[in-house]
Design a binder for these strands. Structure first.
Lengths: 162, 162
DNA sequence: GACTATTCCATGCATCTGCATTTAATTCCG
DNA sequence: CGGAATTAAATGCAGATGCATGGAATAGTC
């Protein structure tokens, strides 16, 4: 129960931390330089745009994005402030609400995807063959336990987690 | 130059973000529950303890840990406040200083490694064979470009990046 | 030597985050 | 029904972070 990790396991840990940090920073940097907001905004807009009628309960969003409740609440504040989403009251449960993406929100999501996908290609795609990327996915899935849920790609997307 | 990433590359991106986030949170959580400070403290203490005479320039620390300058500065503040390190003036360059780890610092580093290594084993080692962990390392190295520098393990360690 | 550029580190300020708590509405259950 | 427990969302506050700037010392240039 208290076995020490092997050199390989420790190495994997270090690299997982370092590489993620580097790649994330690089991608965020690219987005920022293109004048876009943080990735978290993209993720939220994507989830909203994928939802049946372009709206979700904050709780749903929270579950999709794996971020704490208060974080979701404040992210929504910002999206609403920028006119990317609107709050709608929820008639069936007056505690709650619906968050609906606006046209401006959909538009931003699409424009961000152009820069975002280019960044992914630049920092991941160009460095790994598809076969190796798939191997990497498989190995990571063994650690993640459950990030493999859905997350299929249809028109243009990508998600993060933070 | 503007090619879209493959499904595999996008999948790898998503998993890299999600899995890292989960695993990091889990490990930090374990450390926290054991009553220890954040991982960044460990990393700094480790770097200091490894240094020839237990002291480093803030700039060195910054380079080792891959964190911004102001962040290093404040991390040092905290270590000093807690008596884990002391600032020493640098006679050869009066702009600078040396940060020296104290006995309390060395002690904390060692105690943290016990919990830290157990967490690595729990969240990585136990989920991946050594062979697979090595494969994961190799794939991640292709993305990271340069985290493979040194980082050998001698007595007990591990590093992160944030 | 005088002047400029660069390096090292700290810090003010605005924003962001985590944590705990609050308010309000809903559900559970005897 | 009526009160306890649960759930949805917001928020006050302390601490952390990013960014830009400041001051001090050194290095480079002519």
């Amino acid at each position: 129960m208290k076995r020490k990790p092997s050199t390989e396991a420790t190495g994997a840990w270090i690299r997982l931390m370092r590489v993620q940090s580097r790649v994330l920073a690089a991608v965020e940097q690219d987005l920022k330089k293109a004048g876009f907001p943080p990735l978290a905004w993209y993720d939220a807009l994507l989830e909203l745009s994928r939802a049946p009628s372009g709206e979700l309960r904050p709780v749903e969003l929270e579950r999709q994005m794996l971020i704490p409740q208060y974080s979701t609440s404040r992210l929504i504040d910002r999206l609403v402030d920028e006119g990317l989403a609107v709050r709608r009251e929820c008639k069936i449960d007056k505690r709650g609400q619906f968050i609906e993406i606006t046209e401006a929100g959909r538009d931003l999501q699409k424009r961000m995807w152009a820069a975002y996908s280019a960044a992914i290609e630049k920092h991941i795609g160009s460095k790994l063959s598809d076969v190796d990327a798939a191997k990497l996915c498989a190995l990571l899935d063994r650690l993640g336990c459950s990030c493999s849920q859905a997350q299929q790609l249809s028109a243009g997307e990508g998600a993060s987690a933070r």
